[in-house]
Write a protein that binds this DNA or RNA. Sequence first.
DNA 1: TCCCAACATTGGACTAGACCATTCAAGATG
DNA 2: CATCTTGAATGGTCTAGTCCAATGTTGGGA
Lengths: 244, 244
Amino acid sequence: MTSPDRPAAREPKYYTVKRHLLTSIEALEPGSLVATERELAAELGTSRTTVRQALVELVAEGRLVRRQGSGTYVAEAKMTWPQDLSSFTEQAEANGLVPSSRLLASARIRADDDVASMLNVSRGAPVYCVERLRLGDEQPIAVESSWLSAQRFPRLGIVMRRAGSLHAVLASDYGVRLRKGEESIETVPASPEHAALLQTDTGSPLLVVKRRSFDAERTPVEWSTSWFRGDRITLVASLGKRAR
Amino acid sequence: MTSPDRPAAREPKYYTVKRHLLTSIEALEPGSLVATERELAAELGTSRTTVRQALVELVAEGRLVRRQGSGTYVAEAKMTWPQDLSSFTEQAEANGLVPSSRLLASARIRADDDVASMLNVSRGAPVYCVERLRLGDEQPIAVESSWLSAQRFPRLGIVMRRAGSLHAVLASDYGVRLRKGEESIETVPASPEHAALLQTDTGSPLLVVKRRSFDAERTPVEWSTSWFRGDRITLVASLGKRAR
DNA sequence: TCCCAACATTGGACTAGACCATTCAAGATG
DNA sequence: CATCTTGAATGGTCTAGTCCAATGTTGGGA
């Protein structure tokens, strides 16, 4: 009674625009300039808002880059990011990048319920929260927040102000070698703060990696959360024995 | 000359709405009805479009669920999904769910460049493409596409029409036991087709897991891609030695 | 020649509305 | 009492426009 042959999935108009753009993009080199939003709207007989919705998704997929005042460009290929090495420094070097960090914040605070259970300390116990922007070849890769017990690692806040690698400090100053434990991965829209740090748009999808690390005696030592740009990064892990 | 104290990250209006909603949501039980879009727009002195943009992100984060004609509700908690077991069947059972599958398509096609290199066969060689909807307790969890060499696994298309578990078939009918190789994880917006299958919205962020599996002789056997709803699933892997 | 101010153009954010599809409850009908 | 019809309310999609912020070009002045 409704429609004779019902399409399996009704396609919104913006999605038609998106597919049209996708085929145009495929023929172009990374860095090429794409038509302006107003041009596309006129050309495809639609509104700028609808064109914009298609562009938002293509940007989220890492196919396009928009620069206000300048134009929309075909994006560079995504970067792959290994997950099986222990530290950011190692992972960056495996990717052929020069790793660096900017210390955003380092505070001695009291553990809330989440942090307390993850570090196996009592609620309210003093913990260090170290927040860093991680860079590869001076380009922002991830924002990373780490929590560690302040009782176990006294003066960590002072030590971190001069050091680059947290894991190196733990090994040299405290004699702790980390092994990774559970890791969880999900996707969330970027907050304005994270977007600004990662030089992307508010609301664009990020990959969030939460990880707990243990020492040789299986005591939880570090609880960390990393935010990666979903449009620039593909996380890669080799699961079985190592590949090469 | 521009502004006396520049805020670190200018907050869009829709983000203020989002934070307002987030605090309201936190006090509510999953399943609770939230105010309508038009009410919120009037109440917060903004347009429905802006309210909608905030809702889109909260839905993407898995905090809210919208039902056309009915209303907007507080969502159930996300489901965690293990990554360290070999098959979907095992993973579902580890989660306490009854696994099932719907065979969407099963075709014998010629390998394109990507598939050929992943399976280590020549371009144009015959391969099977098996596309399945994976369910846990009858709820859609993931869409999964697998490619396997048709030369190595003759009559796989016929066999799969009756079988549920691909890995079980490989073991029983062909004597192959798989071990996992590299795995990559990224996030993409849902196509209308995937959205319909996973009962979510077109454009909502999905987690895409691509994986290559090998046999005991380290020959690539299966190349698969899985799409998970990013608002419902958190991927979990235990990295070091097994946790328990 | 060099620098800087003015301006046109781009994407970014937002508005106020239209129309549609789905849901669900209230009321009419058997 | 059960069933069907109707219609109001909801979210889904799209339009056509405004104003703003960032960019890059152009032309005038030192």
